[in-house]
Deep mutational scan, measured.
Amino acid sequence: KLPPGWEKRMSRSSGRVYYFNHITNASQWERPSGNSSSG
């Protein structure tokens, strides 16, 4: 399961899957890690 705020999306241009955070408006190709504590 993804960390809070993150969701899986697909890029229309490349067709690749990326991850988008609707809370911080951040996007990245790598899967966000939800196990590590923020610090």
Rank of each mutant, 00 (worst) to 15 (best):
W6G: 00
M10A: 07
K8V: 15
Y19S: 00
Q28W: 03
G39E: 13
E30Q: 08
Y18P: 01
P4I: 08
S33V: 14
M10T: 15
P4F: 10
G15H: 07
P32K: 00
S36N: 11
S11K: 04
L2W: 03
H22S: 13
W6V: 01
N35V: 12
R12C: 15
E30H: 09
G34K: 09
A26S: 10
K8F: 05
S37P: 12
E7A: 05
P4K: 07
S38V: 12
S36C: 12
N35Q: 11
P3A: 04
N25G: 15
N35A: 12
V17T: 09
E30M: 05
T24H: 03
A26I: 14
P4Y: 09
S13K: 14
G5Y: 05
E30K: 05
S13W: 06
P3E: 04
Y19R: 00
R9P: 00
P3M: 03
S14P: 04
R16E: 10
S37D: 13
L2D: 15
L2R: 01
G15R: 06
N35M: 10
Y18H: 02
R12E: 10
V17Y: 12
E30N: 06
K1A: 13
S14L: 10
G34A: 13
Q28C: 14
G39R: 10
P3R: 02
Q28A: 04
F20N: 01
I23R: 05
W29L: 09
L2E: 15
R16N: 07
S27D: 03
L2S: 02
S27T: 13
I23P: 01
S38N: 11
S14A: 07
I23W: 07
Y19F: 07
S13H: 12
S14F: 07
S14K: 07
E30F: 05
S13R: 14
Y18A: 00
V17P: 09
R31P: 13
A26K: 15
W6F: 01
N35R: 08
R12H: 11
G15A: 04
P3W: 02
E7N: 04
F20Q: 02
N35S: 11
S36P: 12
T24Y: 04
Y19N: 00
N25H: 14
A26P: 00
E7K: 04
K8R: 13
R9F: 05
